[in-house]
């Protein structure tokens, strides 16, 4: 059985709002919310020039590898990471053990400010995620739009 994570309009709007507030309050270049399995969930800021899909996969891989190191050291997890570049810095934090919150920032901001704002955003995000997980679980017992998918629908995807 596949365990699904389902995102509905209301929660996505809340997550987008949290991202936008964090982007503004931390003077960041961009903010990303990524599922721990590497799927991009939401973003804010200057993301047009970013390859969000690749960043999401690599960040999730990075967090997974760090989590592996943590368990070898009998740590629960390393909640955050900071990658310092010449121009761009990359702040990674795990929220609600479920998603990854990334802040990209440059010299217009500082690590201290980003940390401060991330803490507030993470608390809000945790609440929204709990609702999302509850809704996903409650929805799994009900017929979804996918129950109506036919073999033809699936076959049609592969007719090149």
């Amino acid at each position: 059985m596949i365990q699904q994570l389902v995102m509905y309009e209301e929660e996505l709007q809340q997550i987008n709002r949290i991202c936008e507030t964090l982007h503004r309050d931390s003077n960041a270049r961009a903010v990303l919310v990524i599922d721990k399995n590497g799927q991009a969930i939401a973003s804010a800021g200057d993301v047009q020039e970013l390859d969000v899909t690749s960043l999401s996969s690599l960040t999730a891989g990075n967090v997974a590898a760090t989590g592996g190191i943590a368990s070898l050291l009998a740590e629960k997890e390393f909640a955050g990471q900071f990658l310092e570049g010449e121009k761009t810095n990359y702040h990674i934090s795990i929220v609600g053990q479920r998603v990854i919150l990334v802040v990209l920032f440059d010299e217009r901001s500082s690590l201290g400010l980003v940390r401060l704002r991330v803490r507030k955003a993470a608390a809000e995000l945790t609440v929204t995620l709990e609702v999302m997980v509850r809704k996903s679980a409650a929805g799994s017992g009900q017929p979804s739009v996918f129950s109506e998918i036919t073999d033809d629908d699936i076959d049609n995807l592969f007719n090149d």
Partner: peptide, 11 residues
């Protein structure tokens, strides 16, 4: 774990 986004209509 599949991720279904009803908002952006993506699986």
């Amino acid at each position: 774990m599949s991720f279904i986004n009803y908002s952006s209509r993506e699986i």
